[in-house]
């Protein structure tokens, strides 16, 4: 059929940003994740949902180059290398690729920030890691970003430990976006926050993702967060992906028994 042919050419028009094939991770006898395959396009937000212990974090660590998988490939369209299996890169090349093309927002800002240096320096550090050596320029970029994430600029030189949880998380987000990455990993980015702070942060992240056209992988167990942020969902259970699809389709017409259970377990207010 001609229309499907056309559809395919459209689908192939843009190269995948990330291509994962047959990814498995075993810890001895225990399975972390099993036979995961998917593709991501630039500008897309992929949500990974599932209960704790479903393998979300193992998968995220394998995808982000922090945990070599037992089997399978993680191919990323790196700015220096093109589409390449990140575990085929030498360690320095991989680290440079991570610095240049990726961001990683941790659930706990203490894991993603340097608590001993000021918020401004935390935000400017990725630029220094990329070889920028002009203080004034970096200071300005840092101010711009803190402004963008709506941090009180008079606090720029304070240490992150004097910030509230929501402020810390906003600094962490600025730190992970200032170098214009292609892909940002987010591990429960609104996990430890008040609902009110959460909503503002979600909106901010959505706005930034849209404005910068960056792709994000968002791990969450919160279906409401997934609905608001993600274009597409992957549902994980016992290390395997049991269902994928457009976010609203997966949540409104779940097919797999586990997804149906997850969706029906969400508290309504």
């Amino acid at each position: 059929m001609t229309m499907t042919a056309h559809q395919e050419t459209i689908d192939q028009a843009d190269q995948p940003l990330l291509r994962v094939r047959g990814l498995s991770k075993h810890y001895g006898m225990i399975t972390g994740c099993r036979d995961v395959s998917f593709e991501m396009r630039p500008g897309e937000v992929l949500g990974i949902v599932g209960e704790s212990g479903s393998g979300k974090t193992t998968l995220l660590n394998c995808l982000s180059g922090r945990l070599p998988p037992s089997q399978g490939r993680v191919e990323f369209n790196a700015s220096r290398h093109g589409l390449v299996d990140i575990y085929d890169l030498s360690e320095p090349d991989r680290r440079r690729m991570q610095r240049e093309d990726w961001g990683f927002v941790h659930q706990n800002p203490r894991d993603g920030l340097r608590m001993r240096v000021s918020g401004g320096a935390n935000v400017a550090e990725p630029l220094m890691n990329l070889g920028r050596r002009h203080y004034g320029d970096m200071r300005q970029a840092s101010l711009d970003w803190l402004n963008r994430v709506e941090l009180d600029l008079s606090r720029i030189d304070d240490k992150p430990r004097t910030y509230s949880g929501g402020m810390q998380q906003r600094v962490q987000i600025a730190r992970n976006l200032i170098h214009a990455p292609r892909l940002v990993f987010m591990d429960e980015p609104t996990g430890g926050l008040d609902v009110s702070v959460q909503a503002r942060l979600l909106d901010l992240m959505r706005e930034l993702v849209r404005d910068l056209g960056l792709a994000a992988i968002l791990v969450t167990h919160d279906m409401a967060v997934a609905r608001l942020m993600a274009d597409r969902l992957m549902v994980m259970k016992s290390g395997a992906v049991v269902e994928t699809g457009l976010t609203d389709q997966v949540l409104d017409d779940p097919q797999h028994p586990y997804t149906q259970l997850l969706v029906s377990s969400v508290l309504q207010i």
């Binding site: 240096v117 401004g120 320096a121 400017a124 220094m128 990329l130 070889g131 203080y135 200071r139």
Partner: peptide, 11 residues
Amino acid sequence: EYGLQYVSLYE
């Protein structure tokens, strides 16, 4: 990878 050292100078 010496970007980090500049963080202290930045501070």
